[in-house]
Structure formats: structure tokens, C-alpha cells
Write a protein that binds this DNA or RNA. Structure first.
Lengths: 267, 267
DNA sequence: CGTAGTGTTGAATTGAATCAAGTGTCGTGG
DNA sequence: CCACGACACTTGATTCAATTCAACACTACG
């Protein structure tokens, strides 16, 4: 948001050279207690399938930094790639800036999801990652993750699966963007969020959007005005209730119909 | 398209018919001799960085089938996932069918590229993969690839990198589809093909499109008429020459300008 | 030589963008 | 605690890029 927030990021030390033990200060007391072993997300994050002792090994390579504030960056476009991040709480967006300065949001990330995998091949982050609210993350140095994956077949398997999942999701989004109407995109977006919140044991039918209308628009290839209009339309159809950023899904089945129904086909 | 074409996969092949107009359709002489060790793509495919003996191990898990004909399928949407495929020659498209029967192309694959990674997480292929011309592939059983990656750190690293590369590419496409004009999309598409042909030592400025206008349109979120019109426009601007499926890029720099220039900004 | 698939081109239509006011919400400092 | 200002969002009028509809041309191949 404001300039002061981006400045805060520079001093807070999420970059690798600012590891815990930095002279700048100490971590929160309770942070030391957090580990994959007691994380409520461990069943849907990287540790899936790992044994207790293996989880401990994983824990040893993971850095847990102090919480991020809204607007803080995990990394920026073209930074050297070194780590991937698992969202522990809060939410993030990734975005790229075009030469003309216009940003386009490329993804939203909720707890249990991994950020930064697009940098693995090129050794640079291809986008910037920014916190949308008060959030916390686990920082996983990629080379260490690779080393550990050599020892733990299950971990290798799981990371392959998480990357495959990202690829599958991206292909779905491709289809969405290349052929769906504004209404279908928004409906699909809401259903996707719903499923992801449900996955982390939150309500599938009532949630608060962490992002602005404009962010949704950039992500879905629409303008913020269109996002606003379509949300209004869906509300008038009594499929959802919109109150500022709070969304209630009234009829999941009907929303799925909106997504699946080709508007050019007679119903 | 017809059932007889998938059957064709099983018929035996007199090897190399050089299909006119097909720059990528060429085959090595004798299939029995083909291995990663002598494959001209080994420097840009899975074996990158492997030692001789390691390449031999990789060779042992790879199946090399008879050539595929135009229209043959590697797999279909919802088939159980078991293997990933490396394109050895020719080209492929992946596509999904919507419930209403309309297809959308999700990707094109050229030699040295990997098909099927979107099935890793769900254990099902999420799209269908079809040959666009006379093609040949290497079939890599995924579970064996995982096992071997446990033994060969370089192989694990390389496969992580190839998946990361797919993710990065998908994010770029996301940006393309969500904010670029028809002209920008086509220009970017042509430049992308150019770079990929150059990667396999083919001409970066003159190539034959293996896909139809309609395929390009589905991939880029445009209609086939728009694809045709924009190709005509770029030709009138003397940036390219179009002759049926043969494309000549006259001015790469100018094409890049087309992609990068925000049409809403005054030039 | 004829047919089916593929590609081009033109005219009319339309969904979403753009332009343009507005209102609502929230954090901040007085 | 309230008033201010900056964002965030909504809504309406108009425009425009791309689609749709339609007709026709080309090519490839049995």
C-alpha cells in the first residue's frame, strides 16, 4: 500500500541473509514453539506422509520469521531465487509488472499453499509476492529441500505432487481465461476460494475476501468495474450475498451451473 | 479423430517418411539405436547434467514406442496417470473438452518438452494429448522416474527444474491471456514458437505451424477468424510473411515491440 | 475431379472496457 | 471521539475490440 510498508519489508529481514539470530531483534516467544510437527496444516502441506523423525528433519531446514504485515513483500520480481514459502496463516498475491507499469496478479495463496515455485527453473523469481493481510509463512530453502528430498522419498514424492498440482491448477485457469465469460470466471473464482477455505477447515460458504476487486479483476482478466458489476448480478440472482468484502455463497450447485453452462447453448 | 487413428499406433512403421511441410517430423533412422545417450535432444531434455552411466540408467526405464500419426492420442482426459512423455520429434497439443463438448487447447509441445505433468498430483490426466503430425515420443513411467530420482540427485534436480519451468511458462500465459490484445497474443505466440524452434536448432525465423488456426485461437482465447485476421494484419505491417501454415518472421525486434507496447499508451 | 477440412474476408452484433461521477469505508491525527 | 482524506467500491453512459454470422476460396487427398 503505502511507501512506509514497503520500506518496512526491507528492514524486517525476510531475505536469506537475515536469518534468525539477526542483531536486529529476537523472534516472538511463542514462535519458537511452532513446528511442522504441531502445525495444524501438516496434513495438507509439505509434511504429508512423513514419519515423526522425518518431520523433525524437515523442521530443521525451515525458517519461521516474524509475521508479515499487509503490503509486505516476500520477494520481488527478478530477485535471485533461493527459497519457496509455505503460507502458514493469512494470504498473499503474486503479481508481475509490465514495462508500462501495469500490474497483473498471477495468483492468490492461502494457508497450506506454496509460493515461489515459478523461480525454480530460472533461479529468479518471475513475480513479486505480497502479503494481503497480517500473515505468517514458513521459509524453505530450496537447495536444502532438494537435499532432504534425496533422503526422504516421501518428501520428494510430495513436492513433485505439489508442483504437479500447481501445474494442473494453472491449466484450469488457462481454460477459464481463454473461454469463459465474466460471470463464469467470477463464479468459478468464488467456488475455488470456497474449496480452498474448506480445505483448511474454514467455512465453504461464508468468507472474507482478502483481496480488492481490482486484484480479482487482474487475476481473471477483467476490470474492477466488471468484477463489481458481476458480484452485484450474482447477488441479484440470489446466488451469493456480498457485503463489502464478506461473501456468502447461498447456492453452490447453482454457482457450478453458472460455470458449466455454456451461455451460447440454450438451456 | 477417428478410432482408426489410435489403432494406427499399433501398426508397424516403415520409418521415416519426410512429410512435406513438416519441419519437425523427421526421425532417426533406426529406432533400436535411439537412446538418451545418442539423442540430439539430450542437452535440453531430462538427461541434462547426467553422467554416461547415469544416462544409461535413465535409458533403462524409458519406453520408446512406434511413431504416432497425426491425430493419435497419447492419452485422454481422465485416463489414469502413470507416465510422462518427452517429445522426441513432431508436435502435440493438449486440450480439454467442456461439458458442452467445446474443446480448449491448453498447450503445444515441441521436441525436448515434457507432456503429462498435470496428472502427477491427481493421478489422472486432466487433459487429452494428441499428435499434430507424424511424431515420436519417449515414455517415462513416473513411479520409476521417482525411484531413479532418489538415486540420482541431478535427475531429481532436473525434473524439479522442468516442472518449475512449466509453472513459470503457465504464469506467463496467464498474464498474456488476462491483459493482452489479440495482436499482442499472436505476436507473443509466434515469438515463443520461434524461441522453441531455435532451442532445437531449427530456424527461429521461418517455420511451419503444426496446428490449425482454430487450435491457436483456442490456446490464446481468440476465435479462429481473429487469428486469421491478426496474422493478415502482421503481414500487412511487414512483420511476418504468412503462406498457409508457413510463417516467416521478418522483424523479431518489431514483434517484441508489439508485445511490449501497451496499446493504451501513446507511442 | 469432387469433397471435406481449413482458411480468409466482410458486415453486424455484443460483452466487457473505458470514461465519468458518485458513495461507502477505514485508518489517522487533531 | 470525531473529522478528514485516501482508498475502495458502485453505478451509469458510451465506446470499442473481438465475436458471431455468413459467404466464399484454397488445399490436400482419396
Amino acid at each position: 500500500m503505502t511507501g512506509s510498508q514497503s520500506k518496512a519489508m526491507a528492514t524486517e529481514g525476510l531475505m536469506p541473509e537475515f536469518r534468525s539470530g539477526s542483531a536486529l531483534g529476537e523472534n516472538c516467544r511463542n514462535q519458537a514453539e511452532i513446528s511442522c510437527g504441531n502445525c495444524r496444516l501438516s496434513e495438507l502441506c509439505l509434511p504429508i506422509g512423513l514419519k515423526k523423525s522425518e518431520i523433525h528433519q524437515l523442521d530443521n531446514i525451515i525458517e519461521r520469521n516474524r509475521p508479515l504485515h499487509k503490503g509486505d513483500h516476500l520477494y520481488r520480481q527478478n530477485d535471485a531465487f533461493s527459497t519457496v514459502f509455505a503460507v502458514r496463516s493469512g494470504s498473499f498475491k503474486t503479481y508481475v509488472l509490465t514495462d508500462s507499469g501495469v500490474g497483473r496478479v498471477t495468483g492468490f495463496y492461502l494457508p497450506g499453499e506454496i509460493i515461489g515455485m515459478d523461480g525454480i527453473a530460472s533461479h529468479r523469481y518471475n513475480c513479486s509476492a505480497q502479503s494481503l493481510e497480517h500473515s505468517s509463512i514458513c521459509e524453505i530453502p530450496f537447495s536444502q529441500l532438494e537435499d532432504l528430498s534425496q533422503q526422504l522419498p516421501v518428501l520428494q514424492h510430495q513436492f513433485f505432487a505439489m508442483m504437479g498440482s500447481e501445474i494442473a491448477k494453472d491449466h484450469q485457469v488457462h481454460t477459464l481465461l481463454s473461454s469463459y465469460s465474466a460471470e463464469q470466471r467470477i463464479a468459478s473464482f468464488l467456488l475455488g476460494l470456497s474449496a480452498r477455505y474448506a480445505r483448511v477447515s474454514l467455512s465453504a460458504t461464508r468468507f472474507v475476501l482478502p483481496m480488492r476487486r481490482g486484484d480479482i479483476g487482474e487475476y481473471l482478466g477483467l476490470t474492477l468495474e466488471t468484477v463489481s458489476r458481476v458480484l452485484g448480478l450474482l447477488q441479484r440472482k440470489e446466488l451469493i450475498v456480498v457485503s463489502n468484502r464478506e461473501i456468502t455463497l447461498l447456492d453452490l450447485a447453482a454457482l457450478r451451473m453458472v460455470v458449466e453452462t455454456d451461455p451460447s447453448q440454450p438451456v
